[in-house]
Amino acid sequence: MTLSPILRIEKLHKQFGSLTVLKDISFTVQPSEVLVFVGPSGTGKSTLMQCLNLLAPPTSGKIWLEDQEITASGLNRNQVRRRIGMVFQEFNLFNHLTALGNVMVGMRHVRGMPKDQAKKQAVMELERVGLAAHAAKYPSQLSGGQKQRVGIARALGMNPHVMLFDEPTSALDPELTGEVLAVMKQLADDGMTMLVVTHEMGFAGEVADRIMFMDGGAIVEQAAPADFFRCPQTERARKFLSMLNQTELIDRPS
């Protein structure tokens, strides 16, 4: 394939004080690719997401988004973030706005769309995540799964070129994760470029084009899901997967 990568990360480092969180991260993402980041807690997966949309600018290293180096100095980061959608673990919906308002506010105030046009598109985005009927509800009136779907619609409303998901289902009750994962799967099928941090191995196996296994702030292994789950190449990945299998055995009623 001779596609130009949509995202290219080169030697990315992130430090908080003396604590190194990310070490020498390099990878490229092709358009419409779905990357799923897995690994033990505290290995910098969430930090990596925050680095990618410059919420936590990297200490060193370079990131290209579609031929533009977004880590270059003097660049308007707000312009960059518009093109990178972000979905948070804790949803972070705007509490004073309805579901529709949450989706509209970015269109109105960042994209500068007129009100009726923004409303029309916001309703479409809510339909896309199956929540058109809940448009007038406030976040406090929505379930966790619904909140997260509004969060996805809000990010989609900015017409992002890449979507980042930072543990989108980790704050949800198990019976609510399904509806969010279904929306994400639909998005992936529609050809959205997605980087997902998750502990949902079922989703990872089904939707991912590539699994990125991270440990200790570095990408230790990357492989197609079938290869990764069947025969992990590194010792650390093997250990991680066997830990997962153990917890699954405990969870499963015999």
Binding site: N78, R81, R82, N92, V105, G106, H109, V110, A155
Partner: peptide
């Protein structure tokens, strides 16, 4: 603070986020 983070994530400037969110 997560409200500010979310507002910045959809591309709002700090000032815009402070006033509208």
């Amino acid at each position: 603070n997560s409200q500010m983070v979310a507002a910045r994530a959809i591309g709002m400037s700090r000032f815009k986020a402070a006033t509208t969110i």
